[in-house]
Amino acid sequence: MTDQANAPAPTRPASWRRIMERVWHDKVVLLAMLYVALMVCAAVASLFLPLDSARTPAIEQRLVAPSLEHPLGTDGLGRDVLARTLVGSRISLLVGVSVVLFAGVFGTAMGVLAGYFGGFWDTVVMRVVDIQLAFPNLLLMVAVIYFFGANVGVLIAALSVVSWMVFARVVRTTVMSVRSSLYVRAAHFAGCSRLSIVRRHLLPAVAPILLTQAMLEFAAIILAESSLSFLGLGVQPPDASWGLMIAENRPYLEVAWWTVFFPGLAIVMTVLAANLIGSAFRVWLDPRQDDGPRARADAAAQNEAPY
């Protein structure tokens, strides 16, 4: 019974509406959401826009300062920085979304296995999580990418392998608290199969916190992808990725700051927006943590980066 007393309040559909209201009142989060929406639109639009200047070098106009023709200037090979930043957003989104999806689905499955079925499975899953915690993730990813070759597929796989534990742990905790609640036991005694209890009762209860975690993890993955691309272990030239753009243009930093500044700004804005949204949601969903919007940076601080 003490379990129930300590369990977070069961999630009701009403809490979603309350959150939407709070988003409307919290202009910072609203702004962050608008930015993310804008970025998604830009990434989709970049598929259809004629952005040849993102890939074709034009040596005669290299390192042109920001102007009307090139709003963010051109890079060391004369390619338009704005066009490349737009194209780069695709990779960031692709990697971020797919890693969150893969790691999220696998992590949720493991979390439910550990939290609901418990016992032996709980021990196994939590041991694996514990062991993975001792992994020097960046070093391991470097070793793996070195062997499989650097490309986006390997990057997504490597990042998924090192991020699923976050989801598993969050889901496990929530499932354990919901498992003993009256409605789940009622469903059990009414003869619902375990699978249908998971589907009808546990997953909906986990959904909000899962979404929150996904947002925070998305931020961490974008940082990790850009870092790996910067180190030459992610996206390869001539493709565009924000991290790669900074690596390519670092020699020109002193003469053409815009080639490094703008791709980096894109990373910071995106990561910041995702962090703000994720941490605001986390605080709002957890009544105990809710000491105003300021608590959200704390939630971001407690999030885990893949390295």
Binding site: I246, L253, N275
Partner: peptide, 25 residues
Amino acid sequence: DRLVTALSLAGLSAPQFWLGAMLVL
């Protein structure tokens, strides 16, 4: 409190390779 929070959020959100480059600049 808000300023400190903003600073630490920025620190947590900025990639080191970019932050480093900007400090160098």
